[in-house]
Design a binder for these strands. Structure first.
Length: 286
DNA sequence: CACCCCACCTGCGTGC
DNA sequence: TGCACGCAGGTGGGGT
């Protein structure tokens, strides 16, 4: 579900309601998440007041008055909802943070790939050490990306999905960014020029900005903290559209699997680069 | 080091 | 109707 735009939409929604709220109770169910602080650690949330919310890549950080940080990752199906006290809880609710006001912050996650960890004041969450540059970072330049890609042959789709390089791009937006940039997902990164990287950076920022503005992309699960679906879905150009006509040229959108993940592209707008893999795919087709 | 594969989970759609 | 299978927005550990 949640890539950078969806996490940012949730962050903005929570930022409107949560600062100033003080947690009065913490309750959890017995099914473990992929990563989760032990119950006694989470109990340290009681009595703490939220100061502000930030985001780093796909991680959401809830900062507390005594300096602690509650780090949350939504995995594939995680949701964060703000619910009033007298209100039934959705299935697969794993954590309920009840505020003194009665407001409840609920973490729901069907597949339990999510993460909720509380870190003490002064600690840098280890998860964040490996996170790459934010898409809008001034350090993200064509030269920086070209240096990261030098000598590598991995497909640009996989490169964009590598959160240790640019943070926050997931499987939907990787395909959308490459369509916007006019680059075939299998293009080997070492072959791209600084001009190509400039196009990628612009496409990345443009797509993510539009997606945030539209409230994110809802395929099946995503909802903001008030349960509303994202409206970027009808603006998707290629993701999930295999066999449908390209909105630019009407050619049939193609699906291909890279590193086990579906990738979508237009064969005309994103022509394959000349070279090895093209010959291989042609010969494979017989 | 670079890169791929797979596991981790549950639910849903499809085809037999 | 039931069952088997493939697929799904993410991450990280292990293997080549």
């Amino acid at each position: 579900m949640p890539e950078l735009p969806e996490v940012e939409v949730i962050r903005r929604g929570l930022q409107r309601k949560l600062p100033g709220q003080t947690f009065a109770a913490v309750s959890r169910n017995d099914k473990p998440l992929r990563r989760q602080s032990a119950a006694p650690v989470l109990a340290g949330l009681v009595g703490r007041t939220v100061t502000r919310l930030t985001r780093r890549g796909k991680y959401l950080l809830i900062h507390l008055d005594a300096g602690q940080t509650l780090l949350i990752h939504l995995g594939m199906t995680g949701r964060l909802l703000l619910l009033p006290e007298p209100c039934p809880l959705p299935a697969h609710t794993h954590l309920i943070l009840t505020c003194r006001s009665g407001l409840r912050l609920v973490f729901q996650d069907v597949r339990r790939f999510g993460q909720v960890c509380l870190y003490p004041a002064g600690a840098t969450p280890p998860e964040l050490q490996q996170v790459g540059l934010e898409p809008w970072s001034r350090r993200l330049t064509p030269a920086w990306l070209a240096a990261k890609a030098a000598g590598r042959r991995r497909p640009i789709k996989n490169f964009l999905l590598d959160g240790r390089i640019i943070a926050g791009i997931g499987n939907i937006y990787a395909s959308e960014i490459l369509f916007a940039a006019g680059l075939h997902p299998q293009t080997p990164v070492g072959r791209l020029t600084p001009d190509d990287w400039a196009v990628v950076i612009r496409a990345c920022r443009r797509i993510l900005t539009r997606a945030i503005r539209a409230g994110g992309t809802t395929i099946a699960d995503f909802a903001d903290c008030e349960g509303q679906a994202g409206l970027f879905t009808p603006q998707l150009q290629v993701y999930g559209r295999a066999g449908e006509p390209c909105r630019a040229c009407a050619a049939a959108i193609q699906r291909l699997v890279l590193s086990g993940r579906s990738s979508f592209y237009c064969p005309i707008c994103q022509p394959p680069p000349a070279g090895t893999f093209q010959r291989q795919s042609l010969s494979a087709q017989g």
